[in-house]
Every structure is written in structure tokens, then in C-alpha cells.
Design a protein around this nucleic acid. Structure first.
Lengths: 342, 342
DNA sequence: AAAGAGCCCGAAAAGCTTTTCGGTCATTGG
DNA sequence: CCAATGACCGAAAAGCTTTTCGGGCTCTTT
């Protein structure tokens, strides 16, 4: 039942109220409710009943003030709009929620001024720690302010090597993708990627190249860098087919690019996966499951990355602060676009 | 510069520290930093310098404890994974961030138990208010617990008429969509929608019908309800063209459905927009801008909805609590798929 | 020169919980 | 029956900030 108008303004019950109703002191009431010993079972029950009757809920502010720990953390994103922050945020919220920790969400919108502002606000609220989520996997400068609580950088690593960062393993993602294509019997593999400015694009390409080298194969053509868009995928696939018609697999830098590539292949009468296998990165389900055929993709496990960041922050709060860049493994999600060659 | 190892454990400076360094009492220090009068300018300056030197930041816990107001709100989502929560969340965070309010983010994952758990946690943290974000526009039961702070329901309205809810106007969205198609010169309009279980689908269809009635037109065939998926859009468009080949516009229940419809039309050799205009709902840019041609869509203004919810909560905290269901207007974003008939 | 006025500053309380330590009561053993 | 022990409860302090109110100082005015 929602708040009734009458109940508005009646300030929440305090421990004193509970103690008075139960006929004990506040100290006893506190001990009774917190399961401390040296309280008579009968007394405890009276207190618990009184608390229930007043729907008492302890004031976390007072508790935090006393304990020097609030059970809150700050989650500071650089760009909530981009699609990579959300799964990380979901994972972190999941991990913290289970541990009785509440999460302050702040979005800096890529603005350094706003970021400092939020950091100051979070510190004044005495958060126990901070997770800084970047908007791309390119390294970012560490927080500008002196912060006396642990900080974990997620997705974008900190440029300071002594900071703790947790990032996806794009090199290995590229390697696993090519290994999957090779396992499907493909040997003439091209790579159409996104914006070269992004380390994610370069890292995936490097991993792909490593896997090709290991198999004694070489890429069909050069890596085609462009933009993270369907339109680029369509255009690049057209050029690719004109230049290298013998290609039997296209590794795409993202699912968006892959959708464009699929479109072009269909228009040119190439069957997927019979003639050409296609796969993407990110495993963005609105794109992968709507595609025809459904799109094989490398899932970067961003939710798990968020959980890992939360766990790392937990440890840093309770014990010693880790350092360096840690990676979270990815996985290939196989769908129709890379079924084995018939 | 990030925290150095040495600084760890040195508890944050308190007002006493500042006062001691400045050679004044804590009361004077407080007044000096908060711009209260009856402080000598010279004294004030000494205090401000001392505070800066110690990088003092007032403890919001103590402040909140005293003031009975924390400057925090809870944002309780039912399902962060769905794509509608995020823009609302962005809008709310934006509106609050400007107002010095910090936001606790909680995700109930559609679980009532978890929701109650989070509400309890938020109340114990003494949030000043609560925003409850639903996962669909279907009405939801009000919060199970008695809550003595204002609550605003966003996206999904509360079933209790005395609660304050802010929702998108799907009826008007359907009306505006059809009006746009008519303005483009279309008269034989079909409607392929998503899951009939969703009130959003029914409301949009109702609005579309109202606009057709007003123009003296009638729908081509019946409303084709199905699923919020590309595959359904492809299948339904195929059936539509077989049955009603004279159709010159297809209003789609979502951008995903529209993408499927576009696919089918191309395969059948119908030109878009020359032969058939297509539009969707949600204005999900990865789908609309990647489409060929780019897709006209109705933007439900969810960010604005989030901001409106935040503003409403602000008012409810400071003044009187509004009631009833309020709507946020949508807008048509015109792109190539509905260019006027030549 | 004395009194009054005005300006500044400081002491103290309030806000709520937890923990420590001291005190009271009952019970048991000698 | 008395002393000792153990069980249980209460007073008080700590944690930090803000506000109120009283007191002290200086400067001016008569």
C-alpha cells in the first residue's frame, strides 16, 4: 500500500521510539535488533515486535557516520548513451545488490568538468569506493582529484599503470573469431572493421592476424577500416566482392557492420553461410537475432566485466588494492551465419 | 592525480580540522564556508584557505542526519536490460545531477521480492523520493510497502489512481504517425504491430484508427499483431502484399518490425518510399539510421519523460504531491522511408 | 569617560545509531 | 545466610555538521 496523505510528515520511527514502546533503553533495543548477545530472549522479542509495529528501519546515515563506512559506491560513467555502459552497469549493480551495497549512478557525459563535479559529490557522500566506466576501450586519464577510496576502472583502462583496470580482451576476441571461422572450414577470410581510431578495432584485427598466422593463412586483402555503421559494411562488402570474389568468410568489426555485409552479400546472390560465412562482434541481440540468417558474434561478456569490477572493488575496500590491467574473457556465440561448410 | 598508497587510511578532514588550522571554532568555520553572515571577511578567508589546504569536503551524512533531508533519490527499475529504461534513466540522472541530487540505482529484474528489498534499503538510506520505472507501458501494482516519501511512477503507470504516473502518449503517437503518412499523400495504409498483449501496441493502433477516421479513410486489412521482431515484420509484410497489393504505406509497431517490413518490400521489388512508405516507433537509431532508406520513426521522447519524472519528484518533495497519470508528448522524426510521393 | 550599540565569535544542542563499560538483580555454592 | 558470579540492562560517548543564543570586544555618542 502506498503512502497515505496522513502519513506524510510523520518522520520515520527512530530507535528511541522503538525502545520507549518496548520499555527498554536504546542500547538494549540496538543490541536486540542487531542480534547481539546479553539480551534476554523475551526482551528481544518485545523489541522486535515494537520495531515491526513502528515499521522501524535503522537510519543508515547515522550508522555510516559512526562506522566510517557507508555501504555505498559510486558508478561513474563517461557516456551512458553508448551501448557498452549499460551491460557493465547491470553486472555491477547485480554484484553489489547481492552484497547490501547501494550504487550511486553518475554520468559525466564525456565532460571532464562534470566528472570532477561528480567525484566531489560522491566523496562528500563518503562512498566506500568508485568504479569508473569508460566509453571506449582506449586508455583514459586517471581521475583528476585526489581520491582516498579505492577506484576500479572498467572498460577503458586508466593510463596510470598503478591503477586497477578491468577491460575486455579484444585481441583474444579477434583470435577466437578467426579460429571459429577456420574450424568452419574457411580459409579465405577478409576483415571489415570499424573506425581505426578505436583500439578495439586494432586489437581485434591484431588477434585475427595472430590466429591466421598460427594457421598458416593470410588475410584476403587488407583490413578494411571504416565506421561502426551498417552503411560502411554494405559499401565495404561491395568493394571486397569486386576485388576478391573468392572470399569465403568475412569477419566484421561489429554486429552493425556485419548487418551491412549480410545485406550486400544477399544482393549479390552470395548465400550465407554456404558461400560466405559472416560473423560480428558484441553480440547485440537486436541485430544478431533479427538478421537473416541469424548472426554469429563474439560476446565480450560485459555483464561479467561489470561483476568483476564490483568484486575487485569489494576486495580493494576490505583488503589490499590490486594493480594493473586485468582482462575478462569473451566467448563466441554461434548462429546460422557461420554454420559449417556443407 | 589518483590516490597515493600513503594517503590511504588517513581519514578525510573534518570541520574541526579546518577550524583548528584556521584558529577558529567549528561554528565559525561552518558559517564561513556556508556563506553565512556575521563572519569577518578576513576570518572567512582564513577558513576557506584552511579548507582548501586540507581539501575539506563536508560530510553529507552528518548534514543529512541533521537536516532530515539527504539530497538523494532512488531510481528503481523493473528491467534494466530492456531498451526503454536507459533513456528514462539518462533523463532523470540529467535533471537530478543539475540539482545537486544524487541517484541510487536499483534494478529489481522484474522480481517483486527483490523490489521490496530495494525499497527497504532505499528507505533506510533516507532517500528524499523514489522513481519507479516500469518495463512496459502496462499498469503495474503500486509499491508493496508503506513509503513515507513521494513516489513517481515512470513509463508504467501505477494501478492506484492517487499515485503520480508519467507515461508516453502512445495513442497520440499512433495518431501523429498516421497524420504524417496522410500528409505524405498516402491513403491505403496498413498497420503491422507487435505483441497484442502490450497496451503500447493497442494504444498506438487506437490512435492510428482515430486519425484514419478523422480523415475519412479506413485501414487496409486488420491490424496485424504479432511480435516485436524483425522476423515478424518480414512475414507479416509478405502476407500483406499477397492479400492487399494496393497498399501504399505500412505503419509498423516498432522499428524492429519496420526493418523486417523494409526487407520484405525490397525483396518483392517495391520501392520505398516511392511505392510504399514505411515508418516505425521508438526511433532507435541503430535501426533507423542503418536502414535503407533511413527509417522515419516516432520518438517517444523517453529522455524527456525521465526529466519530467525527476521534475515531478522535485516538486513533490518540496511542495504538494501531484496525482494521476500525466503524459509526455512524442514527435515524428522524418527520414527517407516516408519522403512525399513524387 | 561611561554607556550603548553593533559586530564577531564560541559553546552547546540536535540529529540517530552503535559500542563500551559500569551497575543491578538474581541465583548458586559454601 | 552471605558472598560471589553471571546474566542482563542502561548511561554515555563517539561520529560530524549546522544553528541558535549568549557573551565579549570595539567603536561611537553623549
Amino acid at each position: 500500500m502506498a503512502r497515505t496523505p496522513a502519513s506524510r510528515g510523520t518522520r520515520a520511527a527512530t530507535l528511541s521510539d522503538v525502545a520507549r514502546l518496548a520499555g527498554v533503553s536504546v542500547a538494549t533495543a540496538s543490541k536486540a535488533l542487531n542480534g547481539r548477545n546479553h539480551v534476554h530472549p523475551q526482551t528481544r522479542e518485545r523489541v522486535v515486535e515494537a520495531a515491526a509495529q513502528l515499521s522501524f528501519s535503522p537510519n543508515s546515515l547515522a550508522r555510516g557516520l559512526l562506522a566510517g563506512r557507508t555501504g555505498t559506491v559510486g558508478l561513474l560513467t563517461s557516456d551512458l548513451v553508448g551501448r557498452f555502459s549499460l551491460p557493465i552497469l547491470i553486472g555491477a549493480e547485480d554484484a553489489f545488490g547481492a552484497g547490501q551495497v547501494s550504487v550511486f549512478l553518475c554520468d559525466a557525459r564525456g565532460d571532464a568538468i562534470r566528472e570532477r563535479h561528480h567525484v566531489q559529490a560522491l566523496l562528500s557522500r563518503r562512498v566506500d569506493g568508485l568504479i569508473v566506466v569508460g566509453s571506449s576501450t582506449d586508455p583514459r586519464p586517471p581521475l583528476a582529484d585526489a581520491v582516498d577510496v579505492p577506484v576500479v576502472y572498467a572498460y577503458a583502462p586508466s593510463e596510470a599503470p598503478d591503477d586497477l583496470s578491468i577491460v575486455p580482451d579484444n585481441v583474444n576476441a579477434g583470435r577466437m573469431a578467426v579460429e571459429h571461422l577456420i574450424a568452419c572450414g574457411r580459409t579465405r577470410i577478409a576483415h571489415i572493421s570499424g573506425d581505426r581510431q578505436y583500439s578495439a578495432a586494432r586489437d581485434r584485427a591484431a588477434g585475427a592476424q595472430a590466429a591466421l598466422d598460427a594457421a598458416g593463412l593470410s588475410l584476403v586483402g587488407e583490413v578494411a577500416y571504416g565506421a561502426w555503421e551498417e552503411g560502411w559494411g554494405r559499401a565495404a562488402a561491395g568493394m571486397l566482392l569486386d576485388r576478391d570474389p573468392e572470399v569465403d568468410a568475412v569477419l566484421c568489426g561489429s554486429d552493425q557492420v556485419a548487418r551491412g555485409v549480410l545485406d550486400s552479400l544477399r544482393e549479390r546472390g552470395r548465400r550465407v553461410p554456404e558461400d560466405v560465412a559472416v560473423m560480428g562482434f558484441d553480440n547485440w541481440d537486436v541485430l544478431t537475432t533479427g538478421a537473416r540468417p541469424q548472426l554469429t558474434s563474439v560476446d565480450m561478456n560485459l555483464e561479467e566485466l561489470g561483476r568483476a569490477a564490483a568484486r575487485a572493488l569489494f576486495e580493494a575496500i576490505d583488503a589490499e588494492h590490486g594493480r594493473g590491467i586485468h582482462t575478462v574473457q569473451c566467448r563466441v556465440v554461434v548462429r546460422g551465419s557461420t554454420a559449417s561448410a556443407g
